[in-house]
């Protein structure tokens, strides 16, 4: 089976369509009245009769931890990312998965073609000693109703010279408890070693 190579273009068109939809929908809000829930509610949440609701937007948004850089590397010469810079912000290991967060800054005409989520085999690999961890994939319906895997990640739609992209993320299998750094390998960029963080 041969995959089509125009997927990046298709993603871009669909993204534009989504943007247009956002501007023309007449979607109406659900006006279901408030009722008593069947079981648990948010811990400590008062009912409207007890206290006036308070907009907590600023506390929630401005309380977010900043993204902290943990490593950088350059785009591989043989990839569509030649000339780009990769900056890594998170490598968080939980008991069941590992999360990688990064951005790309375009340069030298680099483009994101190699980062298509359907080409999961090109995604970074985490190497610890003699063990290699691949990005998680999920099964999706492909052409001819066959099931093909896609990376549990987000598609990259644009890369501009001199501009840092929005954060990308991908999910990997869990790492052993005693691992505190991994080597990251990928056709996209030059290898680098990153520290592992673990949720408190």
């Amino acid at each position: 089976m041969t995959f089509r190579r125009d997927r990046v273009a298709a993603l871009a068109v669909a993204a534009l369509t989504a943007g247009l939809l956002a501007g023309c929908s007449d979607d109406e809000p659900d006006a279901t009245p408030t009722g008593d829930g069947p079981s648990a509610s948010a811990t400590g949440t008062p009912s409207p009769s007890e206290t006036a609701p308070v907009d907590r937007s600023r506390e929630v948004v401005d309380g977010a931890a900043p993204l902290e850089e943990i490593g950088t590397t350059t785009g591989a010469s043989g990839s569509s990312f030649r000339g780009a810079t990769f900056t890594f912000y998170r490598l968080d290991a939980s008991p069941t998965s590992t999360l990688l967060v990064w951005t790309m800054t375009g340069g030298g005409g680099s483009n994101p073609q190699d980062a298509n989520y359907l080409s999961w085999e090109l995604y970074p690999r985490m190497v610890v000693d003699d063990t290699e961890y691949r990005v998680l994939t999920y099964s999706r319906q492909g052409e001819d109703d066959t099931e093909v895997p896609g990376a549990v990640s987000n598609p990259v739609l644009r890369l501009t010279d001199g501009t840092e992209s929005s954060p990308q993320s991908a999910l990997f299998p869990p790492l052993p408890d005693d691992v505190d750094e991994v080597e990251l390998k990928s056709p996209w960029f030059d290898n680098l070693t990153l520290p592992v963080s673990r949720p408190g």
């Binding site: 948010a42 400590g44 949440t45 008062p46 308070v54 907590r56 506390e59 929630v60 309380g63 977010a64 931890a65 900043p66 993204l67 902290e68 850089e69 943990i70 490593g71 998170r90 968080d92 505190d180 750094e181 520290p195 592992v196 963080s197 673990r198 949720p199 408190g200």
Partner: peptide, 24 residues
């Protein structure tokens, strides 16, 4: 954000904290 962040230490062991917000 990077400028305001604590310098990264290799082998860091904790993920960033979440805000504690009343009733949310």
């Amino acid at each position: 954000l990077a400028l305001t962040a604590t310098p990264t230490v290799a082998g860091a062991t904790e993920a960033p904290p979440l805000p504690t917000v009343e009733d949310v």
